[in-house]
Computed example of a mutant assay.
Amino acid sequence: MREFHVGQTLAISPITFYAIGFVIGPMCTSALSEEFGRQYIYKISLFLHMVFTIVGGAAQNFRTIAVARGVCGIVGSPCVTVFSGLLNDLWRMPEDKLGGTLFAMYGIMGAIATEIGPIAGEAIVSDRDWRWTFWLTAMLVGACFLAMVTVPETYRLEIRRKMLKLPRSSIWHCLGPAFARPFHMLMVEPIILPTAAIVTMG
């Protein structure tokens, strides 16, 4: 607010844009990962998330940081959704105890992160400045990207498609069901509508 001379509503809007990106991103990339494989999605996603986090940290005006956060949400969200699919590829749940443990840790960390993030962010801003929240995030995402670079494809259908050299569907053919599927699940899955309502009201 002090640096860019904006009000409180505008100052918190990049957080909103980031959250909206987490809604838009998985709608596209979850379906694309089933058609083009998981590794391309999460590797590209991690790299772009790092790039736009650096752009946000280096922003010299408010418009840049707002756009960078929105794009970060869109390109970063596939890491969350596709990674759960990667775990499911490697371990059969619930028979595999290790896979079940990893899934539980994955879910718990997603909840804990929302509590730890603001506390850590406040400490970083107090000790350094707000830009260091971006630099630290970029470092962590960069480390994740380097760790995942050598991970091969895990999606069985994609491995089979490559081995047999089967044809792929077009991107536009994948995106149609991707946007329709969430609304279909919202209507027909008994657990999803109440859960979505609770999350929305919360």
Rank of each mutant, 00 (worst) to 15 (best):
E158T: 06
L87S: 12
K165A: 14
I20V: 14
D89W: 06
S13Q: 08
S13I: 03
P194C: 08
A113V: 09
Y42G: 00
R168S: 08
F103D: 06
A59R: 00
G85P: 07
S45I: 00
P190F: 03
G70P: 01
T101L: 15
G100T: 11
G21L: 06
D96H: 14
G107N: 14
V75S: 02
Q8K: 14
G202P: 00
M50W: 10
F179I: 11
K43P: 01
R168H: 13
M1I: 06
D96C: 15
R131D: 02
V71F: 04
G37H: 06
C79T: 12
F103Y: 10
K97C: 03
F183C: 11
I124F: 08
F52A: 06
M148T: 04
G21T: 03
P78T: 06
V188N: 02
A31P: 00
R156Q: 06
L157M: 09
H184A: 13
K43N: 09
H49L: 11
T137Q: 07
L98Y: 10
W132G: 05
G7C: 09
E35G: 00
I198C: 13
A58P: 00
R168Q: 11
L193N: 08
A138K: 01
F103I: 12
V80S: 09
G202Y: 15
E95L: 11
Y18I: 02
S13L: 14
V125M: 11
I65L: 05
R128G: 03
L157F: 09
A111H: 10
S126N: 11
I65T: 07
H49D: 05
V188T: 10
V75G: 04
Q60N: 13
W172M: 12
A178F: 00
R63L: 12
I54A: 10
S13C: 07
L175S: 01
G121N: 06
N88W: 05
F62Q: 07
K162R: 10
T64Y: 04
R131Y: 07
S30I: 09
W130P: 04
C174M: 12
G142H: 02
E95S: 15
V149G: 00
A19L: 13
R38S: 01
S33K: 03
P118Q: 09
I198L: 14
A120R: 01
W130A: 09
F183H: 10
V80Y: 15
P152T: 07
C28Q: 01
L140M: 07
W132V: 03
A123R: 07
S84I: 11
V55P: 00
A104I: 03
